[in-house]
Design a protein around this nucleic acid. Structure first.
Length: 585
RNA sequence: GGGGGCAUAGCUCAAUGGUAGAGCAUCGGACUCUUAAUCCGCAGGCUGAAGGUUCGAGUCCUUCUGCCCUCACCA
């Protein structure tokens, strides 16, 4: 039991406040050891949860005392009388230590609540008062035993007879927040970078943060209950995929040594889950991580949690109803209201939600004249897209992707420069469109361009919950074609506050159509699209076995948690968001 | 990747280019019912890193590192 301090990270060199405090705390730990008390012990439980204790004694709370008559001498506190003689063993982290001479008040917190310890020379065991209490610091984990009593200010407290320091805290916690005389907020732990990097401190200090993650957990639990009640089966499918599929995104790449095999961290579980539907698991869901190699933002973390579920014999229309019901139930259970405030905007989650076609969104929210024509006439759509701020290179690529049989004879490097010139643009578009075989392909391309116009003009105006419908085929490679109009799909996305929360559609189960869609993905990749799917031959084989008609949906759990907890940043609903390393750990 | 902002004591924040301060926490003292306890006192800093301008830099300039916002990409 040496009092020599082990070499330790960054606190060695200068005698800073921090290194002094840590040294003092190590000295206190040594003093405990010398007195026969292990400062890192594990034999002092179990303890009553504080919430249970508080609830149990709540009915015994005394009434407020009569106010003393003016001028009366200050009365001495009456002797302490426990409520009953039962001894309670409680445990928790010491939040503050208030010394009053022969008395110390120390509120502690466990995962359920807070209670105050009353540590007094006349009641605490002599050895504990002399040997343990002097070594107690804010942040220590303590176990205390004694009866409960009410203070004269009617606060439930433990009249401590035995005290153990179960874990000595060597590193100081940030100070409690308070308000200065000027009304400024001071103290606390508010630096967002430190809060994310040291989430353990954030959780220990900030009750609101603990609450957010409790609610996130309740959301996930609520989803499971909702789906389980409807006979969905929870499954787990591979997180490491040999080919890219199920979504449009760039993957993370890894390698398996024994098989000497390149693997992709999954960008979506979709194609595996639908294989299960083929196999007869007619209702399945998975809640797990997806990984997408994209930038970070308030709404994006490279790994994020997705719920995907599939229901045989359902259509996308039924899934919209189901989604309203699910999120409505979660709002009721977790928020207690259908109204939430998210990022300063009041959101009304009561059903029904607006259902709006992309075409109408462009017309009514994007204020685009001739919106209908955009979705019919690719020549017109190309002009409109550029006019509304879609980059000319993107428009050119979409046009080229529609050429049947490939794009090898029309390099984009030739097309794009010309396309940026307004004078040449419309002639160039016309010459590309001449190569199209069918009227349907022309409309598919018009729809694709219309979608780009939607993103540029209307997407961020979808504030209240809205199901966006009638998605163009070209951006929906796994969705079922609409029966009436084959250029569009039976698909929806749910938007709230301009952010996509959910994406669902009736599933494409025609293997030949699916093959054409995969082929189109390869063409798009050849035309320069960065995020495309691989051709999944085994998936097509599964569809040849036969997938029952079905509909499926993905819901971003992080964003749903943001919505239902009112957090503006995805990092506030992810315990350990991805951060750049700092070098000092 | 582009643009804008931020980085000072353990925490939260101040400081016209002229000696780096405050509150809280810590440490010492007083106090046997406190709630940010109160009162007295002492300490605590390579101002994110490296260069430069200047008689003199926390402050101005350059580069780097990290974070936040925003745009792009995406969900």
């Amino acid at each position: 039991m040496s009092t020599e301090r082990p070499p330790h990270d960054d606190d060695q060199d200068a005698e800073t406040t921090l290194s002094r405090i840590m040294g003092e705390r190590r000295d206190k730990a040594s003093a405990l050891r010398d007195a026969g008390h292990n400062p890192f012990r594990n034999d002092v439980g179990p303890a009553t949860t504080l919430a249970a204790l508080i609830a149990e004694y709540a009915p015994t709370r005394p009434p407020p005392p009569e106010p003393p008559p003016p001028g009366a001498p200050k009365q001495k506190a009456p002797p302490i009388t426990p409520i009953d003689e039962r001894l309670h063993r409680v445990a928790g982290r010491v939040l503050v230590k208030r010394g009053m001479g022969k008395t110390v008040f120390a509120p502690i917190r466990d995962t359920t609540g807070e209670i105050q310890l009353y540590l007094n020379v006349d009641h605490l065991a002599a050895d504990d008062f002399a040997q343990v209490l002097p070594q107690l610091d804010t942040g220590d984990i303590v176990v205390a035993e004694g009866p409960a009593f009410w203070t004269k200010t009617r606060e439930l407290s433990i009249l401590v007879r035995r005290l153990w320091i179960a874990t000595k805290s060597l590193r100081p916690l940030p100070s409690k927040e308070f308000v200065t005389e000027k009304g400024e907020q001071r103290g606390g732990f508010t630096d967002v970078e430190q809060r994310y990097r040291q989430r353990y401190v954030d959780l220990a200090i900030n009750p609101d943060v603990r609450d957010v993650f409790r609610r996130r957990s309740a959301i996930v639990r609520g989803i499971r209950r909702f789906l389980d009640q409807r006979d969905f089966l929870e499954v787990e499918t591979p997180m490491m995929h040999p080919i890219i599929g199920g979504a449009a995104a760039r993957p993370f790449i890894t390698h398996h040594n024994a098989l000497d095999m390149k693997l992709f961290l999954r960008i979506a579980p979709e194609l595996y889950l639908k294989r299960l539907v083929v196999g007869g698991l007619e209702r399945v869901y998975e809640i797990n991580r997806n990984f997408r190699n994209e930038g970070l933002s308030r709404a994006h973390n490279p790994e994020f949690t997705m719920l995907e579920f599939y229901q045989a014999y359902a259509t996308y229309l039924e899934l919209m109803d189901l989604t309203e019901a699910m999120i409505g139930e979660l709002a009721h259970d977790v928020v207690g209201s259908t109204k939430v405030t998210w990022d300063g905007t009041e959101i009304e989650l009561a059903a029904p939600w607006r259902r709006l076609s992309i075409r109408d969104a462009v017309r009514d929210l994007g204020n685009v004249a001739d919106a209908a024509r955009i979705f019919e006439d690719p020549q017109f759509a190309a002009e409109a897209a550029v006019a509304h701020g879609v980059p000319a290179a993107d428009v050119a690529r979409v046009l080229v992707e529609g050429i049947p049989g490939g794009v090898g004879n029309l390099p984009l490097t030739d097309v794009v420069p010309g396309f940026k010139d307004p004078a040449q643009r419309s002639r160039l578009a016309a010459s590309i469109l001449e190569r199209y075989d069918t009227q349907e392909q022309r409309r598919v391309t018009a729809g694709h361009l219309g979608y780009l116009v939607f993103e540029a003009t209307a997407e961020d105006k979808l504030i209240q919950p809205t199901f966006l419908t009638e998605f163009p085929l070209a951006v929906s490679p796994l969705a079922r074609r609409n029966e009436q109009d084959g250029a569009f799909c039976d698909r929806f996305e749910l938007f709230v506050n301009g952010k996509e929360i959910a994406n669902g559609f009736s599933e494409l189960n025609d293997p030949d159509d699916q093959r054409c869609r995969f082929q189109a993905q390869l063409l798009a990749r050849a035309a320069g699209a960065a995020e495309t799917m691989d051709y999944d031959e085994d998936y097509c084989r599964a569809l040849e076995i036969g997938m029952p008609p079905a509909a499926g949906e993905g819901i971003g759990i992080d964003r749903l948690a943001m919505l239902l907890t009112g957090q503006p940043s995805i990092r506030d609903v992810i315990l350990f968001p991805l951060m750049r390393p700092t070098g000092d750990g």
